[in-house]
Amino acid sequence: MINVFQPTLGEAELAAVGEVFASGWVGRGPRTKAFIDAFGSHIGVAPEHLVSVTSCTEGLFLAMEALGVGPGDEVVLPAVSFVGAANAIAARGATPVFCDVDPRSLNPAVDDVERRTGPRTRAVLVLHYGGSPGGIAEIAAFCRERGVALVEDAACSVASAVGGTACGTFGDIGVWSFDPMKIVVGGDGGMMHVPDPALRAAITTRVNIGMSQESGMASAAAGGRWWEFDVRAFGRRSFGNDVLAAIAQVQLSRLPEFLARRSEIAKRYDHEFADLDGVLCPPPLPDGHRSSHYLYWLQLAPERRDALAARLFELGIYTTFRYLPLHRMPVYGSVSSLPGAESAADRTLCLPLHQGLDDDEVGAVVDGVRSVLGGV
């Protein structure tokens, strides 16, 4: 099966894990710090503004907790978003308020966010669909003007930027993912960007089971009783470890080659599918925008979309649609009508796009799509 997502892992990643095993320390330690430093350099921020966590989803939960989101609050987020984002809001007793998205880019514009913002809005939580930044700069300016916190779910956007500013650094908190379906893979894990010191301190305490960072080895080095500790908040064990960090750091060093290959495949798809009748490719990026090319999608009439997906599966080509509109899920209690998100969900199909695809596999996807749509 030609997959939509697939990690590219090799001897270098295996050797890095072997070094961690040989060190006798597989928990949070020097490799975690080294990866934090490397990731900070990659996105252009000070490493002390970063917090390593077990997953992007955990980072979103931590973000809602640290911002004090709770019952009576509302958090605006695009309907086409990851379920973990809405769960992070609902778990706090707050209300996820879903906004519409552009049916072509699947990203919200600032007007979409503004229409759903009200007096109870505590925060805005934005996904960059498929790695395209969308209207993040305008949304960030709007949130600053309104005094509303902005959280960026940058799981798809490890190398996305606007005007040289990395996605994930526009708001109060940004969160990235290194799970097995992402571009930089650690096996799992996530990273948070939190520039405000007080907010970052609240998160780091929660990450460490609510304990102060001065306990344990640091206390021993200072001559104190290292077995004593101070619990300052209710928290979980949410920090990353050296095994995940070692893999992810190697992956980060390979990111330029990954991005070059993904861009090459996206350009070939653009060229090969441009002349298909009734089929739309992803819209071009605005000037100054850089995409991570996490997803590539076609849009066509719903019945043709479904027939294409079924036939490609028979040919050994896996496709999907990410993400199902959350306002359609009864658990969140939404009764909103969001035509952009609904149109996108009914017409969009994500094709295989990862750096591990060879030319023959890309050719098989192209031939499969063109042959099927010629008869549908």
Rank of each mutant, 00 (worst) to 15 (best):
A202I: 00
M1F: 14
N241I: 01
L150D: 07
T117G: 01
I317G: 04
D230P: 01
A307R: 14
V331Q: 12
G189K: 01
E19A: 06
V110R: 10
E152D: 10
V151C: 08
G187H: 05
F39L: 03
R122W: 00
L62A: 05
N107I: 04
A233I: 02
D100G: 07
L50M: 06
F273Y: 12
L62K: 01
L300C: 12
P30I: 00
G235C: 03
L77T: 04
G84E: 04
F39V: 02
A88V: 01
G44C: 06
L276F: 08
G187S: 12
L259E: 10
Y323T: 12
A109T: 12
G29I: 00
S23K: 06
A94W: 02
A161H: 15
E145S: 07
S238T: 03
S292Q: 12
A79H: 09
P195Q: 10
D153C: 12
F142Q: 03
A38V: 00
V372T: 12
A141E: 13
T54M: 05
E152L: 09
P195M: 10
L67F: 04
G44Y: 05
T95Q: 07
P302R: 12
L295G: 04
A344F: 09
D112E: 11
G278N: 10
A66S: 07
A34L: 00
F273N: 08
P133G: 07
F170S: 13
V101Y: 06
R262I: 04
D270M: 12
